[in-house]
Design a protein around this nucleic acid. Structure first.
Length: 243
DNA sequence: ATAGTCACCTGAGCGC
DNA sequence: TGCGCTCAGGTGACTA
């Protein structure tokens, strides 16, 4: 039941969804895949989206845009203040969906490698930070984790992707893996008003080396961390530890 | 084809 | 207390 269809794209629910039983929930990149027989809901939470299972009697709150109604009185309720999220439905295999089909490898899978990043990056002048935030290269690396991974790998964000050596891409691969694994372990990163599924903050913020620390001292060498903008996104690095 | 910019949206935070 | 401004972020669309 769509209360307000105005998410990133207008929400359109196919009639055939009615009566289907949710069979499983998967994930691809930052998309949640709610699998129904013959139909998949592709849900992105954007920046501020939350899904909660509540009673249908729970008063509808501000920004409660969509309800998936289930048996009994339970509903899966989407709340998304900033409306950067989205919901699509596909009765074809999701791998063929336009949002999914061009996505790069999962960063925690064996399909992801520094080797491949190196190969893909040849002759590219784009900044390496933008390169690893490109979902066709690897998925799941947003602004915060791109900053952190580059710090861990000792690479300057502004370096041209095509000039980063294979050895450094191998470093970067493990930096991305460790950064994301640890962040997941700690429940993600809470900044400002952004909270996790239980309404609790993510504690990875305490382990950030550079993100949000512009002007503060590098935890490793005490150099003042430098802030720049890259692709219109906040970028922070240590001029001493990262080259 | 690649690279860079724009746009979407709301609430937090800040200066006055 | 309130007003207005800036910023944050994911990612497709657009421009050059």
């Amino acid at each position: 039941m769509v209360r307000d269809p105005r998410l990133r794209w207008p929400v359109v629910v196919p009639d055939e969804l009615s009566g289907l039983r949710l069979s499983s929930v998967d994930r691809r990149a930052k998309y949640l895949l709610l699998r129904f027989p013959g139909m998949t809901a592709i849900v992105h939470l954007g920046m501020s989206g939350r899904l909660r299972v509540v009673s249908e009697n729970l008063p509808v709150g501000k920004h409660d845009h969509v309800d998936f109604r289930f048996e009994g009185d339970r509903v899966l309720r989407l709340n998304d203040p900033r409306r950067f999220g989205s919901i699509h439905f596909s009765d074809d295999p999701v791998e063929a969906h336009w949002l999914i089909k061009n996505l790069g490898p999962e960063p925690l899978s064996r399909d992801f490698s520094g080797e491949q990043m190196h190969r893909l990056s040849r002759r590219r002048h784009q900044a390496v930070k933008m390169f690893i935030m490109n979902a066709q290269v690897v998925v799941g690396v947003g602004n915060i984790y791109a900053n952190e991974a580059l710090y861990r790998a000792g690479i300057r964000p502004r370096n041209a992707a095509g000039r980063v050596s294979k050895a450094r891409y191998l470093e970067l691969e493990s930096a991305i893996r460790s950064t994301l694994s640890e962040a997941i372990e700690m429940g993600g990163t809470t900044l400002r008003d952004y909270f996790g599924s239980e309404g609790k903050p993510g504690y990875f913020r305490q382990k950030l080396f550079v993100y949000g620390r512009e002007g503060e001292e590098c935890r490793r060498c005490s150099t003042e961390l430098k802030g720049i903008r890259l692709g219109q996104r906040a970028t922070v690095y240590c001029p001493t530890c990262q080259h």
